[in-house]
């Protein structure tokens, strides 16, 4: 493990910036390039990077599988929920104009939550697929 010292230190320095960049891409997507999908992938990539350097069990401790599986469904739920909220407030499905008193503010709010849903699902799915592929041999040996 000692010969991985450089990698471990570089990873520890870089990963906070990667997560920060994911959040930046998420919340700055209204103004610059980016949005939910890119942010979700970058966030998942930071965790994947962590898993590559520190090992899969460490990553699974930090972001446990039940959390990831919940994220997979939660994002779609959030997105569809924003749509239904529009219906409940008297608009059409996925109609953001009714989400706030001011139509433009409503658009802003709708886009924000929809992008959050996309980011949650995308990062959940990416992480889940990575966990599945990377942990398959280990799981097969331990499972039976």
């Amino acid at each position: 493990m000692t010969r991985l010292l450089v990698l471990r230190i570089v990873a520890k320095i870089l990963i906070p910036f990667m997560l920060m960049f994911a959040l930046y891409v998420q919340f700055h997507g209204d103004f610059g390039p980016g949005g939910g999908f890119q942010a979700g992938v970058i966030g998942a990539a930071a965790i994947v990077f962590y898993a590559l350097i520190f090992g899969l069990p460490a990553a699974r401790r930090m972001v446990p599988e039940p959390v990831v599986e919940t994220m997979v469904a939660l994002g779609v739920f959030l997105y569809a929920g924003v749509g239904l909220l529009g219906v409940a407030l008297g608009g059409n499905y996925l109609d953001y104009f009714v989400l706030a008193a001011d139509p433009v503010a409503g658009q802003h709010r709708g886009i924000f939550w929809v992008e959050a849903g996309v980011a949650i699902t995308v990062s959940g799915v990416m992480l889940k697929i990575f966990y599945m592929f990377a942990g398959r041999r280990r799981d097969l040996e331990e499972g039976r």
Binding site: D30, G35, V104, Q107, V114
Partner: peptide, 18 residues
């Protein structure tokens, strides 16, 4: 004007093509 979002890509993606 309609969405208040300067990035047209995001506006189209999340609102017009929701």
């Amino acid at each position: 004007r309609e969405t208040g979002v300067p990035n047209v890509v995001t506006a189209v993606l999340a609102s017009y093509r929701g």
